[in-house]
Design a protein around this nucleic acid. Structure first.
Length: 801
DNA sequence: GAGATTGTCGTACC
DNA sequence: ACAGGTACGACAATCTC
């Protein structure tokens, strides 16, 4: 029998049988077995014939492990041609035994740490969720509409565009965290949303919208949830923090009632994948925890206040969560406001589904680029992302990959550091007509231009020469990279850049979600490659390469600064790959000509671009010093849009009042081109703070706990408050945001810090001296206004009238 | 024991 | 442990006399 299906999930057994579960075009569930593929690894040996026979005979009858085949290949390894043996074996779990047997030969083994299922997808060039064929014999399995054993083939590129996606979100009793929470606090509601389902299940009756379904108990609610999933057969289940909260919670509560959480399409129970992270796996269904992908891949390009569903929705959808002030305990106990509560629950799944729609195209592009399953992609880190892509591309270049480092190597590598980028001390001032230039993808283009690859390091001092590099011991070094043969990684990065440039070219004439996502994915992989060289856990870790890239980077940006100065531009600031100048008597056209001139001399793919023109900009000094503060400036563009970098107003760990006031001050100064009104405004606010006219909510300061509470050597205000919270049974696990207000209590600041709910006054002096003043002082100083002048009371000004 | 210095911590920039 | 280094600034902890 022959069928076509979209594979969703992949697994394998101890006999090297690959199992794919997927959906057919008409929505039927298919389970497919392919036993045509065997695990393998590589070994290097010049004396191939001598050892080939011996290796072929390795076997262990008791454990059913044996080498099935050995082939000889000519391969590349770190830019050297090598004779390599490809050793196939029967059982993916037999690797350890075979490697131990090979120890006697003292030979190098490679690609021993690549997951069998992923190896299968790459070698067979199968992209998950893409139309796939199988022709084979039918096997009986009542869980599936089709179950076939045969050889899988993918000839189509038709992606499964319209999968059934089900969003899930639970609401639980109680507000505090604590260890016994799961034991004591029941789930109250389960919200479910897809294109076909809109439902909130709950177990107390109240007047509600018709999407609310009532059952008689929590246990019934969980059973109902399982029934809905099993009937609907979604392709993808999504949640927000569902790896760590919703599913572990549902699992624990189900266990309490002895309910089997057999959500898998093969009727298997939901499970946690082995390893450090809580990854909730449901066989045959792709479970995605959107929070993971946002935190690991998207966050760097988003302006998030926190990773809460609310702030992510605000950023991605320009729409926050519904403001609901319901005390869950009170509402549930007294059957009050439960209708609102159910609306809130539904709204959460709505946001989850909408966020999914936004980020899914990016995940899809990464799935296509790497051949990794969506389940893995949604939980991938930058390091793994680059590595997955390199594993995929290695085959195209006949390249064998280095192994992941051993534990000993990691601890050694972790201590190693190297010099990074150049940051220029800004020239303090309030400027007119600022032009901002930056290099397009500086580090990736250096990797390509200078052929930076571990295998290209030249010991005989020939090739591309790095600037002098000083290591952490003060030793000076120069590295040389082979100019003759392009390395595997430079070639891959070149390809990434060219492909992205091509897409950007197309995007000029058509706006398209897929192209945008592809461009994002290509850029992310290219930009992470430099980081991978410096990452201790990477296969291609190379401090030499990482430090060479930054050294070339410093050289290129310093050279650009020099050339700008030679053209009589006043360079006011530079960080890593950017520089800003004031135009002075020059025109925008002069600036563009300067770019043209400089770009002629740069290697191909490397380009200095105009980031923007800004009619006004301000660069301030460091606190308590006369030097300019790096990474701290504000600009206004020609449309009046303000771009703020590094200032307190964009930092999450300052009080709301400071962030508000500083933002307003910067806006007024940049828009008006003078400081007088801003000064009046600040004086007014200071008076209001003194007079206690400011809402206590605006005095809240937020800081995150980064470690377990016990690990802190220094007990700062947020740690002190977290300790108080712990006594109240609240959640204080790492990652928790701690909110506090500095009260009028005596002592040092941590003694004064209070949980907002147990605080009804603020220390005006603290908020003026330690919050408002530090944030505006340096701005006014640029205009020659001292701190004391800012603090002069309003009355004296009134006297002028 | 007050004032200066150093260390810890969180967050941001690129 | 799951990309890198550079930088600012608050506050506590420690040193210094």
């Amino acid at each position: 029998m022959e069928i076509e299906f979209y594979p969703l999930d992949i697994d394998y057994d101890n006999n090297s049988v690959i199992k794919l579960i997927g959906t057919t075009k008409d929505g039927k569930k298919a389970c497919v077995y392919d036993d045509s593929f065997r695990p393998y690894f590589w070994i290097f040996n010049d004396d191939v014939d001598k050892i080939k026979d011996k290796i072929s005979k390795i076997s262990n009858d008791i454990e059913n492990i044996y080498v099935t085949n050995v082939e000889v290949h000519n391969k590349n390894y770190l830019n050297k041609e090598v004779k390599a043996l490809k050793v196939f074996y029967n059982n993916p779990r037999g690797l350890r035994f075979i490697l131990d047997e090979l120890n006697d030969f003292g030979i190098e083994k490679k690609e021993i740490d690549i997951n069998f299922a992923k190896r299968y997808l790459i070698d067979k060039n199968i992209t998950m969720m893409t139309l796939t064929k199988i022709d084979g014999e039918v096997i009986n399995d009542e869980n599936f509409d089709y179950c076939i054993k045969g050889i899988v083939k993918q000839e189509s590129q038709e992606f499964y565009d319209n999968p059934k996606v089900l969003a899930v979100d639970i609401e639980v009793y109680g507000s505090a965290g604590g260890e016994d929470k799961v034991k004591n606090d029941p789930i109250l509601m389960i919200g479910l949303l897809s294109k076909d389902i809109k439902k909130v299940i709950t177990w107390k009756k109240f007047k509600a919208q018709d999407y609310v379904e009532f059952v008689n108990s929590e246990a019934e609610m969980i059973e109902k949830f399982i029934e809905i999933v099993k009937n609907y057969k979604p392709d993808i289940i999504i949640g927000y923090n569902s790896d760590s909260f919703d599913f572990p919670y549902i699992k624990a509560r189900a266990e309490k009632y002895g309910i089997k959480l057999n959500l898998g399409s093969d009727n298997s129970n939901l499970r946690f994948t082995p390893g450090l992270q809580n990854n909730v796996k449901i066989n045959g269904i792709i479970h995605l925890d959107l929070l993971k992908f946002i935190r690991k891949i998207m966050a760097a390009n988003l302006q998030l206040d926190s990773y809460s569903l609310d702030s992510v929705a605000k950023e991605l959808l320009q729409q926050g969560k519904k403001e609901v002030e319901i005390d869950i305990v009170e509402a549930w106990d007294n059957i009050k406001d439960l209708e609102k509560f159910s609306e809130y629950n539904l709204h959460d799944v709505e946001l989850t589904l909408e966020i999914f729609d936004k980020i899914f195209p990016i995940m899809v592009e990464i799935v296509k680029l790497t051949n990794m399953p969506l389940f893995d992609i949604s939980r991938i880190s930058y390091g793994q992302l680059v590595e997955s892509y390199l594993i995929k591309r290695a085959g195209d270049f006949n390249e064998i990959l280095p192994n992941k480092p051993m534990h000993e190597d990691i601890s050694e590598r972790r201590l190693a550091t190297y010099q990074g980028a150049f940051v220029m001390e800004p020239k303090i001032g309030f400027y007119n007509d600022v032009a901002f230039f930056d290099f397009r993808s500086l580090y990736p283009s250096i990797i390509v231009a200078k052929n930076i690859y571990p295998g290209n390091l030249n010991s005989n001092k020939e090739g591309y020469e790095t600037p002098e590099i000083t290591d952490e011991n003060g030793n000076k070094k120069i590295y040389y990279f082979n100019t003759k043969r392009e390395g595997f990684i430079p070639e891959v990065v070149r390809d990434l850049i060219i492909r992205r440039n091509r897409i950007k070219e197309i995007m000029k004439t058509e706006d398209n979600v897929t192209l945008k996502a592809r461009s994002y994915a290509l850029k992310t992989i290219a930009n992470s490659t430099y980081g991978m060289y410096g990452f201790f856990g990477a296969r291609y870790y190379s401090k030499e390469c990482a430090s060479s890239i930054t050294a070339f980077g410093r050289q290129y940006i310093k050279d650009a600064i020099k050339k700008a100065e030679e053209e009589d531009f006043l360079v006011i600031y530079s960080d890593t790959d950017s520089l800003s100048v004031t135009l002075g008597n020059k025109t925008k056209k002069d600036a563009l000509n300067f770019l043209k001139k400089i770009n002629i001399e740069l290697p191909s793919l490397m380009e200095l671009e105009l980031e923007g023109f800004y009619p006004r900009g301000i660069f301030v000094s460091k606190k308590g010093e006369t030097q300019g503060a790096k990474k701290k400036y504000a600009l206004i563009d020609e449309n009046g849009k303000i771009k703020i970098t590094g200032f307190e107003t964009i930092r999450k760990d300052w009080s709301i009042i400071v962030r508000e006031v500083q933002l307003k001050v910067i806006e007024m100064i940049l828009k008006e081109g003078k400081h007088e009104n801003a000064l009046d405004y600040v004086r007014k606010i200071i008076k209001e703070i003194k007079d206690k006219k400011i809402d206590l909510k605006k005095m809240v300061i937020k800081e995150q706990l980064k470690m377990p509470l016990e690990s802190y050597k220094q007990i700062g205000p947020h740690v002190a408050v977290a300790r108080r919270m712990k006594l109240l049974g609240m959640d204080t696990s790492p990652g928790t945001n701690i909110y506090f207000i500095v009260s009028n209590e005596p002592g040092i600041i941590r003694d004064k810090a209070r949980i907002p709910s147990e605080c009804n006054d603020y220390d005006a002096n603290y908020y003026i001296e330690n919050q408002i003043m530090p944030s505006v002082e340096k701005i006014f100083e640029v205009f020659g206004i001292t701190k004391d002048q800012v603090l002069i009371q309003e009355q004296s000004k009134l006297g002028d009238f």
